[in-house]
Amino acid sequence: MTDEAPVLELRNVDKSFGPIDVLQEISLKVRSGEVLCLLGDNGAGKSTLIKTLAGVHPPTRGEILMDGKPVQFSGPKDAGDRGIATVHQFGGTFPLMSIGRSFFVGVEPTKGWGPFKVFDRKLANEIAVKAVQSFGITRIDDGDRLVGGLSGGERQSLAIARAVHFGARVLILDEPTAALGVKQASHVLRIVLEAKRRGLAVIFITHQVMHAMAVGDHFAVLIRGALAASFRKGEKTREEITDLMAGGEAMAGLEATLETYMQSHEGHPPPSA
């Protein structure tokens, strides 16, 4: 397993926008059948990292490797064609389109000939529903339903099922559980595990440590554009990870300040500035 080349790897990747360095010396790897959790607070550079992985931004320095070979993405389409699929927070789907239609956007199945080629709605619906159901979302059984009527978790599931159906090898999930309730989030986590079981390399971006710990094999903590820590499952506790994400000492200092303030003010927290 370990001598197999990682599906996707970043080596010492920097990304700058003009004079501003957003990412510094990022090295990451993710293998087939593994979940890499990318943790970081708002503004840590997560979205820039995602866009670099997905081919939106070329790295300023450093290299991206797929299956051990250096690659350069000409754009998100190119990255997509090589099997890198990004699923965004709200599913990246079209709320006013039907499940079947949105599933096949850009690759519509057609029937008939010449100028009379028509969109095969029945086939599209059938495949889309089957793909989602194979991920355990059995509540979706009508491909004519509008995507906007699905719950947040179902939309995520649809987007993930779509990516897998079209041959994704690397699944980048951008805060898939951020806007979801507890039950919906657990649906999505189960789908992440299912994707992992099917041998996909999953990069799971989140700031919810609990969600990360539930599915992750590897963890990387991003602070101000640099990797602050990188460790395997079971090597750190939840508190340690949370501390890391918030910048460790800063958090401890804040807690101490709060404690003393509340003691001297009859239990009231300090007024927020």
């Binding site: 079209f94 389109m97 057609t110 080629k117």
Partner: peptide, 14 residues
Amino acid sequence: KTRYGNWIFAMGGD
């Protein structure tokens, strides 16, 4: 009925 129609809907959606 055609895929081009699907494209038009998708463009307006996102």
